[in-house]
Design a protein around this nucleic acid. Structure first.
Lengths: 336, 336
DNA sequence: ATGAAAGCGCTAACAC
DNA sequence: GTGTTAGCGCTTTCAT
């Protein structure tokens, strides 16, 4: 067995190995690898060739240590299952890429626990975190110390920055629409929370409904199309006269559409339906979903811009400028 | 202005700053920060408190340099827009998290160029890459040197590992089904490629159709529901008698469903439709989509397991064990 | 065009 | 229980 000495390198080759092999100093290797001036073309090529043969890859740690490295941001989201989150993630990745940041993703949707676990995993790897952290946001900020956390769907509070949504405004838009298309017996389906209380969206909808003199039926479902479908089926058996439905998000609204169709009700004629989020899925279901739409690219851009400001010092953590609020837009399609 | 001296720290605090502030050695700081033994509780707390005040965060580079660091894998995917990719990404992230790996995501869907650009951005940051790299796979491997690349939907070739799909098998399943439900005039909608040739899926479908004596109509569309819808509308005007349609993926199939409904055709009665991928979207559209389904959690797990083997040396790069092939399963719902 | 020295911030190993 | 000494692998001076 006299084959190549290092088919499966036990230890990674270092710059010194390459330097030794080439019979030059390590600086020369650096110059060759990084396309720096002050080196003869022939030397450069010889070194590069040797580096390839040895399977040499500069250590990102050593490099980062000495150079101060590119910023890397952690993205913490509660699962990629609801299309909303990938859409958001996509825009964050896009914006981050433009700045030559890299994004480390952690999805705490599956068994992997809470938002806090995700942040704990991310903490040693990143310079900042953007995420849907819910009530864990402040503890996440504590975990990151001075490194900024930008929370979504939550006011900044003790975190460096926050982007929240104007739910009362959105609720008003939706409820007005439902009224306008003639709905009289309106229900709102909220997502379940750990504490059993209403979500921020739910609270806003309930508040506006009361202002409008609407006798709102509120019920809950897990955040999935399947669960939502069952919840609506069950609701329908109790409230047969339901003729207007506002739903926590579009994915759940899609499930609701299924339930309504299954019960023989026409949408929007027998019951109007409005979702929330504005994800592309809404255009693929039948009937197409009227929804409170968020421009997810804007949300992603806003988050990254805010983080950029925080990182550069242009925006002060916890200041009013760091606590943004975005609005939904009512996109009218077929379901209401 | 005699406020706190370091509201916006110009330079990050280092371990030495904390040590100096606490009047201890840096080793003691290390012990305090990392919950190591051999330190008095009081000292530990005092140091931690000081660290927090100074906003000290251990440099991940220095730490990585000295400790050999956790592996981090790059995930390169062509956009998060098609729900297929987030579903895949989600399972990769989940599996990676179980191994305490972290995943750096790069989405080259938007303006950010080709798969190769993504790999170039990832290269200095990661120990390996998993991705839908298409024809760029081998060049990506060259870019990474000895670090393994696992390509998806592509045989391994010159990359360390590959996971491909048995399209002839899948095509057979679908075409048999279409024949079984009585389709006689069958079309296949492929995705467009840069070279204008058929995709691997398209080639397999065409091959099997020819074996089966089917006179297959092949047409193309961009990979989006919208484009697909238009492509089908246009096809319908040319081939009014179409009664069976197999589609490149589920997202495009959803668009096809819209076109069919818009033309007044019933699915599956007037025209049966079969998609490919098995994403959850298929259950949300009307009628629910019959599809060639891939268990995406399996695909993700397989990719991560393979990478694990490659990284540990248990699997040899380029060997037969590193070139896996998975099969689709026909999930019969309503559309065919 | 190339090399030598210094040091980035941290932890492992061994003192004391 | 705490401090000291060595590096980890690289790039930045500053020589030569």
């Amino acid at each position: 067995m006299t084959s190549t000495p290092r088919n499966r390198p036990a230890k990674r080759a270092t710059i010194l190995d390459v330097a030794a092999a080439a019979g030059v100093s390590r600086q020369t290797v650096t110059r060759a690898m990084n396309e720096m001036p002050g080196i003869r073309q022939a030397t450069r090529e010889r070194v590069q060739e040797l580096a390839r043969e040895l399977g040499y890859t500069p250590s990102r740690f050593a490099k980062g240590l000495v150079q101060g490295a590119h910023t890397s941001v952690g993205l913490a989201i509660p699962g990629l299952t609801n299309p909303y989150f990938p859409a958001f993630a996509s825009s964050v990745v896009e914006m981050a890429t433009q700045r030559a940041w890299n994004v480390v993703m952690d999805d705490f949707g599956h068994g992997s626990g809470s938002a806090l676990d995700a942040v704990a995993r991310l903490a040693p790897q990143v310079d900042a975190v953007i995420g849907y952290l819910g009530p864990d946001a402040e503890e996440a900020q504590a975990m990151l110390g001075r490194r900024p956390v930008v929370v979504l769907d939550e006011p900044a509070g003790l975190t460096a920055g926050g982007i929240s949504f104007d739910y009362p405004y959105a609720a008003r838009l939706a409820l007005d629409r439902l009224l306008a298309v003639g709905s009289g017996r309106i229900a709102y389906m909220d997502s379940v929370t750990e504490e059993g209380s209403l979500t921020a969206r739910g609270a806003a909808v309930a508040g506006v409904a009361s202002d409008l003199g609407i006798d709102l039926t509120v019920f809950r479902s897990e955040d999935s199309a399947h669960a939502s479908r069952e919840a609506v089926e069950s609701l329908l058996s109790r409230h047969a006269g339901l003729d207007g439905l506002l739903v926590f998000n579009d994915l759940m609204a899609a499930g609701a559409l299924k339930a309504l169709a299954g019960s023989g009700r026409g949408v929007p004629d027998d019951c109007a339906v409005i979702g929330m989020d504005g994800i592309p899925l809404g255009e693929l279901v039948t009937p197409e979903l009227t929804t409170l739409s968020l421009n997810l690219r804007d949300v992603g851009r806003t988050a990254v811009d805010l983080l950029d400001g925080l990182l550069s010092g242009a925006v002060v953590a916890g200041s009013a400028e760091a606590d943004l609020r975005l609005r939904h837009e009512l996109v009218i399609r077929q379901s209401a």
